[in-house]
Design a protein around this nucleic acid. Sequence first.
DNA 1: AACCTTTCGCAACCTTTGGTTGCACTGAAC
DNA 2: GTTCAGTGCAACCAAAGGTTGCGAAAGGTT
Lengths: 116, 116
Amino acid sequence: MSAVVDDELWSAIGDPIRRTMIDLLLADGPGTATSLSRRLPVTRQAVSKHLAVLDRVGLIHAEPAGRERHYQVDEAQLARAVAQLSTVGATWDARLRRIKRIAETIERHRTNTQGG
Amino acid sequence: MSAVVDDELWSAIGDPIRRTMIDLLLADGPGTATSLSRRLPVTRQAVSKHLAVLDRVGLIHAEPAGRERHYQVDEAQLARAVAQLSTVGATWDARLRRIKRIAETIERHRTNTQGG
DNA sequence: AACCTTTCGCAACCTTTGGTTGCACTGAAC
DNA sequence: GTTCAGTGCAACCAAAGGTTGCGAAAGGTT
């Protein structure tokens, strides 16, 4: 039933801040909590918590570098997430099309039997 | 930058319960808070709150029928949501491919100049 | 009509989550 | 060694998801 998707992964990318963070990490390469917070409307600590969430579900991983922690996207995991996005999208899309087809069939049948 | 997506729409479908509710409404047709709650691991009131959220962002709409309220998916809005899903997915996918390509280019260059 | 059942909406309350401020610690630079 | 930038931890707040409890309204029964 397709409902077998990773809920944790979904809720991870469901947050707009976290989605933007992934965007930034993809666009600009690895970054730190501080560097990301400078480009986001929240504090470093908030960013830090989001990074922890993304790290926990495996979408990113940290690499200590001196006093900094460089975070970067785990490409394989993100690819998996993208696949799940499109799976759900495709499922809904298919259902919508099926509903539309049924509705049209009924309509056609109605106009046929009722003659107009 | 694609970040111009409807955050409300995202957070609406970001919740696993709400995603399942949409699934159920698509699969079984219109339903009420009570009927949905019977197929979900939460109480009717929780379902009711979720329905309110989905209604507010326009993904579903209610149709009063006697003492019941029949909710059903707004197909156009859901189609829009699906489009946004695939937009974000495509963006990330493109970035991942770009990164991979660059990495491969660097690698190729390295092995060329270093001779192996 | 009176009664019971079902469905709903509202209010109070609890827990988790996203956000903030404040503080102490550490690596790097001067 | 002092100073500065980046982190982590803790306390505290507000919003969101969830629960229980209750009262109101529509529908079916007798």
